[in-house]
Amino acid sequence: MFEARLTQGALLKRLLDSVKELVTDANFDCSETGISLQAMDNSHVALVSLSLRAEGFNPYRCDRGFSLGVNLNSLNKIMKCAGNEDVITLKADDSSADSLCLLFENSSNERVSEYELKLMDIDQEHLSIPETDYDATVMMPSAEFQRICRDLMVVSESVTIDVSKDEIKFTAEGELGTGNVKLKPTSTIDKPEESITIELGQTVSLQFSLKYLSNFTRGTPLSDQVMLCLSDNMPLLVEYKMDIGYIRYYLAPKVGD
């Protein structure tokens, strides 16, 4: 028997909203420690890795590990039927899981809706992501990163990210001209969510697709801060951390001529 009840159902709505553009079908791997998902986009350029800890649900029950093969478009359609204040419960019979039950209860509990989503068999290749000691780790307000991606998209569909000890610089060059945004570390004690920090092993400069980065910023509502990890000739890691877990996006770099 699998049951996971999340009081802040809106979180699940936002999480699914932040992956729906990237992947269409994915396996939710459920175990007694929690729920995780790893999926690449069709072009194998980007990957999303989601992890929700069992402690974040109440109750959480997963008698034995199993996978829920889900078409994310269909799941998103059903999630649209949940109110933002609803408590969401996921249930499945973990022996013969051929469907996932979703229960939406409103706060005063006089409205309960129940949906069943047909599950699919998805054989997905799994990537092993090595623990990396990154050359640069940048923390910044997630809204700031979203704005930089959106602004520089008007100039080009590629962005070069340069990180040095006291600056992170985003540069775009295109037909119309060029644009760049430079951020300096700040540490506003009273507003930690506004702070910008740079942890530098060595300077790094990499080029990425802004189309994918903009797509990743769908995770902005999940966290005030976003973490960017860069290492030379390694995929970029973009992480939005939540109390209940994290959503991580990996993006392979572009190599110039």
């Binding site: 799994h126 990537l127 697709s209 572009k254 190599v255 001529d257």
Partner: peptide
């Protein structure tokens, strides 16, 4: 010209 790398170049499929 920029070439977009693939993740499978960096991460091993298991």
């Amino acid at each position: 010209l920029e070439i977009q790398e693939l993740l499978t170049t960096f991460f091993v499929q298991v």
